[in-house]
């Protein structure tokens, strides 16, 4: 799929996510909008996965460590064919497989249950290590939020990944500069993320996390450095694509009212045309 098509698809995924959050009356829409392009690039450009065979031992793995943005993962998995599109409408409903955080036991395509932050990268290190032990070609991708990088467990994993020379592991940090309660800069500032990761022995690339061409290039195997895990610092906007949400801390998990919903849907629709 070409970058232009990917961008259109990403906005369709945003619209479906917006609708799901609006109808469920809950969700984490800000971080879902910021990660939409990253997920789209991974599932429709980079990763080798087969919805008909979700446990293929040679599949690429994705861990959405910022598990609170589960809804947009569900929408993406539905778009890819892992789950039925109609199932997205069950998001947060009683006994739905689609609860507020992804569950590998209930949702095909989910690799590990996330929710508490700082869990995905250690699991990703284990996956990448398993592939290395088997000299297998499959790759592991982990998406974290930038606030999530405040969790110490991530830095344990960062050290191990460098020590183990896991060049089959790619960490994408959704760097939207906002955490739940405030800006990172006003909480615990994590920038400059690149220098920190480089100091820990990683190969780092900074990109515009809403630019499909840059995403596809940064995710491609050709841009991997031998023996080094890769970190993509993806500069994003929380609430990206929706003017009144963009870069606004209150939209971490606020739910749009009917008028806001209509406006947001209109903006996303126009962007896709």
């Amino acid at each position: 799929m070409y970058p232009e098509e990917l961008a259109i698809l990403a906005n369709r995924i945003r619209r479906r996510d917006l609708q799901a959050v609006f109808e469920a009356g809950a969700g984490h829409i800000g971080g879902e909008m910021s990660v939409a392009d990253i997920l789209t690039a991974l599932y429709f450009h980079t990763m080798s996965v087969d919805p008909e065979n979700p446990l293929d031992p040679n599949r690429d793995r994705l861990v959405l460590s910022k598990g609170h943005t589960a809804c947009i993962l569900y929408v993406t998995l539905a778009e890819k064919g892992f789950i039925a599109k109609r199932d997205v409408a069950t998001f947060l409903k009683p006994y739905s497989a689609l609860n507020g955080h992804p569950n590998r036991v209930k949702v095909p395509g989910v690799e590990t249950n996330t929710g508490p932050l700082g869990h995905g990268l250690p699991v990703g290190v284990g996956m990448a290590k398993a592939a290395k032990l088997d000299a297998a070609a499959w790759r592991t991708f982990v998406i974290t939020g930038d606030g999530e990088m405040q969790e110490g467990s991530n830095w344990e994993a960062i050290m191990a990944a460098a020590q183990f020379k896991l060049d089959n592991l790619t960490l994408i940090i959704d760097h939207n500069r906002l955490q739940q309660g405030a800006r990172l800069a006003e909480t615990i500032n994590m920038s400059p993320l690149s220098k920190r990761l480089e100091a820990f022995g990683w190969a780092v690339e900074e990109i515009d996390g809403h630019d499909m061409e840059q995403l596809c290039s940064a995710l491609s195997p050709e841009t991997v450095t031998l023996d080094r895990p890769k970190c993509i610092v993806a500069h994003t906007n929380k609430g990206s694509g929706i003017s009144f949400m963009s870069d606004r801390v209150e939209w971490h998990h606020k739910v749009p009212d009917a008028e806001q919903y209509r406006q947001a849907a209109r903006e996303l629709g126009e962007a896709s045309n």
Binding site: P57, M127, A160
Partner: peptide, 28 residues
């Protein structure tokens, strides 16, 4: 030696790594 995975003094990572190894078909 290659099947002994020592993560250093880092228990949270140790358990996460084990989960990932299991996902990759290993028996940790």
């Amino acid at each position: 030696p290659e099947r002994l995975i020592n993560v250093g003094i880092a228990e949270q990572n140790m358990v996460g790594v084990a989960a990932g190894l299991a996902n990759g078909g290993k028996l940790p």
